[in-house]
């Protein structure tokens, strides 16, 4: 009897979920959902949150050296936004039944990932421009698509985040254009940053559609609406033109407009490098996580103090 009840509950739950899926209605935290769906979202949303937070490091590397007061203000505001996005996404992920502390723990043990792109170093001021223009530019293409993702809190987070990300992309492009209008040394810095960030930015969309192991479920559950290759093509098409306007060379000799496809064709992406960096062997993997761990552990006494104070206040009240 009990077994039959369980089966009944399972099938009712599954059908409510399926119905919502079919009708393109958002799934909300209190709705029943398949365990696989929940796990997939926790993985994706926590990775997204971690990326925002780890991404503060390469940009933060330049805050104290920002070359003008205006540049410092803009960069500070931008990194604050990223931090806010991280907080917002952690909260959204918490609606799935995982705590921020658990997600941090998973980041530290390597169970949870963050965007591979932040394992590359920010070496000159133009890198700050390239991160805004290329990295945030690639992220926006992904995030615009995620505004229609099936999980309500995630989709709403994306709507808000996209507004700020487009400001980031513009500020990055402004840095690049200013430098391309500047001295020879500035133009060299800009091109150098372009050369180093272009290919990793293309890798941000993930493996080709034929290779991506999560594509199946993500599509079925409407978490993902467009494929890696579709999104990558969108990014390339808009960015190549922007590069051209300010005189930057895209470091791809095979790049050609393909009239028939209506997209640019690009040269082969170095997937060996991609998997090497994902596997922990990028220039900054160790540095980024070591920094996050150190800050987290250095701050433990502050968090303990805040808790102890709160407990005392509750006792008084």
């Amino acid at each position: 009897m009990e077994q039959r009840d369980d089966a009944l509950v399972q099938s009712t739950m599954q059908s409510a979920f399926d119905r919502k899926m079919e009708q393109d209605m958002p799934i909300e935290p209190k709705d029943e959902m398949p365990e696989g769906y929940r796990k997939h979202l926790i993985r994706q949303m926590s990775q997204h949150a971690h990326s925002e937070v780890i991404g503060m490091q390469p940009e933060g590397n330049w805050i104290t050296r920002a070359p003008s007061l205006r540049a410092r203000q803009i960069l500070l505001a931008k990194i604050q936004d990223e931090c806010g996005h991280g907080l917002y996404l952690y909260s959204a992920a918490e609606t799935l039944g995982i705590s921020r502390a658990e997600m941090t723990e998973q980041l530290h043990t390597g169970k949870a990932k963050y965007s591979n792109i932040f394992n590359y170093p920010a070496l000159n001021w133009a890198d700050v421009g390239a991160i805004g223009w290329l990295v945030d530019g690639a992220a926006i293409v992904n995030q615009v698509s995620l505004q229609r993702t099936s999980y309500g809190p995630y989709s709403r987070a994306m709507v808000r985040i996209c507004k700020e990300e487009s400001f980031h992309q513009r500020q990055g492009y402004e840095i690049m254009s200013k430098m391309m209008c500047g001295t020879v040394a500035q133009r060299e810095m800009a091109q150098d940053a372009m050369n180093r960030w272009w290919w990793p930015s293309l890798m941000m969309f993930g493996p080709h559609d034929s290779e991506s192991p999560h594509t199946g479920d993500a599509f079925r559950w409407k978490i993902k609406r467009q494929s890696n290759d579709e999104l990558r093509a969108k990014f390339i098409d808009k960015t190549v033109q922007q590069a051209d306007v300010i005189g930057l060379t895209v470091p791809d000799k095979d790049l050609r407009w393909n009239e028939a496809r209506g997209h640019y064709d690009h040269g082969p992406i170095n997937w060996q490098e991609f998997y090497k960096v994902i596997g922990g062997y990028g220039p900054c993997n160790v540095q980024r996580i070591a920094h996050h761990k150190k800050v987290h552990s250095d701050g433990a006494w502050v968090r303990a103090a805040a808790e102890a104070y709160m407990t005392k206040q509750k006792l008084i009240a």
């Binding site: 937070v53 503060m56 490091q57 933060g60 805050i63 104290t64 410092r72 500070l76 990194i79 931090c83 991280g86 907080l87 952690y90 920094h291 800050v295 987290h296 250095d298 701050g299 433990a300 502050v302 968090r303």
Partner: peptide
Amino acid sequence: AEWCSNAPML
């Protein structure tokens, strides 16, 4: 500004 990415909590 030096505290960016160095604070005990976000």
